[in-house]
Write a protein that binds this DNA or RNA. Structure first.
Lengths: 252, 252
DNA sequence: ACAATAGTGTCTATAAGACAGTATTGA
DNA sequence: TCAATACTGTCTTATAGACACTATTGT
């Protein structure tokens, strides 16, 4: 087909965010309550329109900052700094995914350390961390006193894809450290793996594995007893992005 | 930001295809020659606009059929059948990636067996298989008699991302069989791995590995001598989608 | 006979799973 | 003291890498 820019069907393009964190030993996602139709009153992933002169990753980082105050840290971007890991996840463009119009949504995945509490942006909706297990359950998610309902639009599918990406990516990359504060112990890192995978890991074999993988962890010299028990060494993430050999996820 | 569908910036949405195959022991991609500006005369990935009522995967499958006659086989779709493997790759939306207008392109990755020769669709441009190594070289790609030039738009980046996806995905999935004809030998499969990874593999260890992974290969009972030497057993792809443990790519 | 490819077997090094046992804190 | 967590070490098993050797074809 000749590339005729004057005769193209117009689309709206949005970004949706799968923002994951580990809270109280379970994997949680950020959801917001919709204040208007369609799906009014239902929970949805945060997101919004891409602006006319804005890159996709920039739009995702802007929405993330608006929702959480987090500073995104795109691994592709040279700008280093504190903040969450952000990467593109996938694009969803079913013609009927939004009942009002043709909307193509470029979903992004964000991995963040445990945050105090989500704060709503300038808008009047509420935002909340919810366990992904509840969000993905048949029957949907509700907080106390609400009717249980599935996520709006195709957001349950997007969330499921994001969770699966996170679960597989911590196998062969050092991304699990994105769920941790800047300094963390081996036990804290193990509890991240356990929460994301939903399995129990042998603490001794885990310790041997992560401390034996060069470039994964760098000791800071400090120790902490914030988990109770014997003081544990503190580490920060090493430079290695890929783990070789990978962490093995036990068969479920 | 409130979700206001009446005030959104309009985008054009396209699909671009990274169609890979293995020919003469090297990994090749399908490129088409642009017949009009911008980048007139340059090589580019095949692609085109998504129609107003068309799903993204359907648009990619339609473009693939127009360019190659291949029937796409989306693993997410229930419709089984012969044809190439198709999956979404990533989405590219830099505001300046097309000099004429704001275009967001949803790139798809296609893995196909060696085909007789690309046929142009109804259009007047030429299509061609080109080794990815040449396409990604600094300085760009040219056939004989042409000036070497990089791929049009951001297609070199899209191709590089597609090649990297294919290289990593054949490690832990059975996707390498998508490069093979319906029946193939262990040696032919090994040459696929060697071409995609650009390394030499030990034929004996490779044979032990692939025949020992349950669900990867199913013997058909036939044999062939099309590679010369002792007759080799013929196999077809087994049902397993994931290889556990994975194939290990030798460090480069 | 010889070259070429297919296929089997064997040794070794690495690493994962299971789990005993020691170390160091707070209550 | 005990409970809890951190850490070290040891045994077994699985598997990858290296490579010797045999099998079956075409020329």
């Amino acid at each position: 087909m000749p590339y005729d820019p004057s005769a193209f069907p117009p689309f709206a393009v949005t970004v949706d965010l799968v923002v994951l964190t580990v809270r109280r030993h379970s994997l949680c996602a950020l959801v917001v309550r919709r204040g208007e139709p369609p799906f009014q009153g239902r929970w949805a992933l945060p997101g919004g329109f891409v602006r006319a002169d804005e890159d996709l990753a920039a739009a995702a980082a802007r929405e993330l900052a608006e929702e959480t105050g987090l500073c995104a840290h795109d691994p592709a971007a040279p700008a280093q700094g504190k903040g969450a890991h952000l990467e593109q996840l996938a694009t969803y463009g079913d013609p009927k995914r939004d009942p009002r119009m043709r909307v193509v949504s470029v979903a992004h995945l964000v991995l963040a350390p445990d945050l105090p509490a989500p704060r709503a942006g300038g808008d009047a909706y509420s935002a909340r961390w919810a366990p992904v297990e509840a969000l993905l359950n048949q029957g949907g998610y509700a907080r106390e006193g609400e009717q249980a309902a599935p996520l709006a639009f195709d957001h349950a599918q997007i969330l499921a894809d994001g969770v699966e990406r996170a679960r597989s990516k911590i196998e062969y990359s050092s991304l699990a450290t994105a769920f941790c504060p800047p300094e963390f112990t081996v036990g804290e890192l193990r509890r991240v793996y356990e929460a994301v995978w939903g399995v129990a890991l042998d603490p001794r074999n885990f310790h041997r594995k992560v401390t034996g993988t060069v470039g994964f962890l760098v000791p800071t010299g400090g120790t902490t007893t914030r988990q109770g028990g014997r003081p544990a060494q503190l580490f920060r993430a090493g430079g290695a992005a890929l783990l070789n050999p990978p962490m093995l996820r036990p068969e479920v």
